[in-house]
Design a protein around this nucleic acid. Structure first.
Lengths: 150, 150
DNA sequence: CTTGATTAGTACGATATCGAACTATAATAG
DNA sequence: CTATTATAGTTCGATATCGTACTAATCAAG
């Protein structure tokens, strides 16, 4: 039994290592498709707002992205400088703010998606798509578990 | 057909987003189990050297970890300050260096693994182990493909 | 009400990582 | 041999992220 346990133990490290490497690779690939100064994490925020609706507070976005409030403050500042979002005070909560997409922000997302997909045409083939589809559900379950029990 | 394509497209972004979030979560969890000032990526280097043998050049380690040479220079400096490794000139190549583990380095790895596993006892259950095992092979295939075609 | 506890956002310092530019050595071509 | 090209490692500046600590506003008891 402890042998099985050992094998599993090493699976854990290997697993997280694979995750880390894939993350670095995908971040690097995405970064090349985005305008200078716009990080993949910034795109992820805009993408999230388009898909799930804007008018959210920074804290909610931070929770969805699993980053700290500080990081979100910084990222939103970048996006605001680019005019991709507007940040307004929350009329119902004096402490809070609400993040709204601008037309420029939506346009940026469209362009970014087109650019990334064009690049992926050369990189991601049918087998890769299949792997991603197959694995994605499992990853989502795992992510939720880790987020809740960390 | 283009509808299928659209679905796949969004799988891609969602997939990489999941990867990014899991990476952040796992990094955060691991970081808490390591001595102050030792980053999970530093542990990964030592772990790699123990498992695959030391006496490798910084470039080879960088390639294995999929980080740049600059990053490896920096990480090795940290590990060397901690006396977890020694960096010697390569007798066969005047430009190169060789990285060797110290006893302290091996001890650090043992302790780190024990610490992380103790923490994971509370976080990672049988279902999570199962997911990691099931998914790991797929991730490895994907990682290799991305590394080669990026 | 008032006081203590929680939450939203910000400020500051630290660090891991990257890209670009540089040095030094090695390998290859003519 | 010499000149060009390639490779190993470092240095420098930029940035995304984190942790700690702070301010301001809300909420919850009493």
């Amino acid at each position: 039994m402890s042998e099985t346990r050992d094998t599993e133990d090493f699976e854990v490290f290997g697993f997280f290592n694979e995750i880390g490497i894939i993350n670095q690779l995908s971040t690097a690939i995405l970064a090349k498709c985005l305008p200078d100064g716009v990080h993949p994490s910034h795109f992820a925020i805009v993408n999230h707002l388009v898909r799930t609706g804007d008018g959210k507070s920074p804290v909610r976005i931070a929770a969805a992205m699993q980053v700290t409030k500080n990081t979100m403050t910084h990222s939103l500042k970048v996006l605001e400088d680019r005019k991709f979002i507007r940040v307004e005070p929350d009329p119902e909560d004096g402490r809070g703010k609400l993040v709204r997409l601008t037309d420029a922000g939506r346009g940026f997302r469209e362009a970014a998606i087109a650019s990334v997909l064009a690049r992926f045409e050369d990189i991601v083939g049918p087998e890769q798509y299949e792997i991603m589809g197959r694995v994605r559900g499992d990853l989502e379950v795992l992510r939720k578990h880790l987020a809740e029990n960390r």
